[in-house]
Write a protein that binds this DNA or RNA. Sequence first.
DNA 1: CGGTGATGTCAAGCGGGCTTTACGTCAAGT
DNA 2: ACTTGACGTAAAGCCCGCTTGACATCACCG
Lengths: 65, 65
Amino acid sequence: MNSRVRELRQARGLSQEALARAVGVSRQTINAIETGRYDPSLRLAVHLARHFDSTVEEMFDVDAH
Amino acid sequence: MNSRVRELRQARGLSQEALARAVGVSRQTINAIETGRYDPSLRLAVHLARHFDSTVEEMFDVDAH
DNA sequence: CGGTGATGTCAAGCGGGCTTTACGTCAAGT
DNA sequence: ACTTGACGTAAAGCCCGCTTGACATCACCG
């Protein structure tokens, strides 16, 4: 699933680790989502969207691939 | 996780089975989500929100419980 | 050159999301 | 009384989301 996590994270100058701590998951989880290795849970997706003042629909492209 | 799936489904006069078919999952999955036994995946949550012309954030209360 | 931060990825393990199959209950209608 | 539809739930099994721990690479900087 494509997402704008990396784009938004970098736009704010955050490391994967800093974002991971901010949303309560491990650094590897953020990396896996950014590299498309797996999709976040609904809960994590909402937390990520909130963190970037966005919405789930705007941040995650459920239709890609 | 609380959701408005049951409320919206009933408002449209759909059975769990009809909704399940519409969003591409089993009837048991819809039932489990409505009864709070587990949370939908991000993909399914988006499909459900779309089906009801709503948004993920409006349909699912990630903070409940 | 040596150290540090950021990133990518792997492996093992746990629990959860979803499936199929299968029951049981209840309401409504004939 | 019987059937039918809708719902609730259980069990077994598969795959995925997430964890910790570990290792490698690369850029940058003293």
